[in-house]
């Protein structure tokens, strides 16, 4: 697309050709940057899918892995799938109520100075590296008494908490004051206003935030290395035991010399990736649907 330059007496067009060239170059670079970002995603998804495809079968989720396998018996990662479901599920049960309560406090009760302190604390907590959370829970709970799925859940919950709290604070801030006032003006007490008017209005956004947080921690490896990684091959649903998880399994398999292990790592990675992409897209869809609903259907 090219535009015709204006020409005529009295028009000032100093350096116009050069300026337009610079502009076009910069615009081109911005397009290129976007193309690179998307290409990376494409390449990652493609290579994971392509390499995991051969091992992608029901054995992956139904069969246990075999220690020191010299046989060609089919093996899977059923222990990792079970562990991930248990650990992430419990982490969600821990982080969700805590995160929502923190947000309710910040948004509905806290005086301004305390509000800014708590939001800063949430931001700082969100910035603590996952591996540091891992060794924190290790020092706090694991040293002396050993690993367990529950301790893994706790470390993931710490990662989820600021995420849930932040998104909930954002959504609560979007609930119009007029609604709170309408309820309070009826003589409805504050707690009832919060529980029956404010939170229901925000529930869509909170749900979106939760789905995103679950998608994020389901792929976390670092905090689990120190809290739930020394495991057997048995499929185990008991959170009191150390449980295998998909990310930790991929991490271990990726360092194995056996190409068959790599294939299983790719396949498990593919399943994880599909789950996470699906969850992210669901969250996005929920968010747009919710926004449309809030805008008055």
């Amino acid at each position: 697309m090219s535009t015709q330059d204006l020409t005529g007496p009295g028009l000032r067009l100093d350096h116009l050709p050069r300026r337009k060239r610079v502009n076009r170059t910069m615009e081109g670079l911005a397009w290129l940057a976007a193309a690179i970002a998307i290409a990376i995603l494409g390449v990652v998804v493609y290579s994971v899918g392509q390499r995991g495809w051969s091992e992608l079968n029901l054995n992956l989720i139904t069969k246990q892995p075999i220690n020191f396998s010299l046989t060609n018996a089919p093996q899977g990662l059923s222990n990792a799938f079970a562990g991930t479901i248990v650990i992430v599920g419990i982490a969600m049960l821990m982080a969700l109520p805590a995160g929502i309560l923190v947000a309710v406090y910040v948004n509905e009760f806290a005086p301004a100075p305390i509000r800014s302190v708590i939001t800063l604390v949430i931001d700082v907590l969100a910035g603590v590296p996952a591996i540091v959370i891992g060794i924190f829970v290790f020092v706090l709970l694991v040293v002396g008494s050993g690993q367990s799925g529950l301790k893994g859940s706790f470390s993931l919950a710490i990662l989820m908490l600021p995420f849930v709290a932040r998104t909930t604070i954002e959504v609560l801030a979007l609930v119009p004051n007029a609604l709170r006032e309408a309820s309070l003006a009826l003589g409805v007490p504050r707690w009832r206003t919060t529980l029956s008017i404010v939170l229901p209005r925000a529930i869509g956004g909170i749900l979106t935030g939760t789905v995103l947080a679950v998608a994020r921690v389901a792929g976390e490896t670092a905090p689990l290395l120190f809290t739930s990684s020394v495991v057997g091959v048995q499929t185990d649903w008991n959170p009191a035991h150390a449980l295998q998880t998909i990310p930790v399994a991929i991490f271990e398999l990726s360092e194995s010399p056996d190409p068959k292990d790599h294939a299983r790592a790719w396949a498990a990675g593919f399943v994880l990736l599909i789950f996470i992409l699906f969850a992210s897209l669901t969250a996005r869809w929920l968010a747009t649907r919710n926004a449309r609903k809030l805008a008055g259907r």
Partner: peptide, 22 residues
């Protein structure tokens, strides 16, 4: 495009690492 770029953030680090080695 926004969705795709944000999806990149959702890819677990262990997968990026796996892809990084091999």
């Amino acid at each position: 495009v926004t969705a795709l770029v944000e999806t990149l953030a959702a890819v677990p680090s262990v997968l990026i690492g796996l892809w990084g080695i091999y």
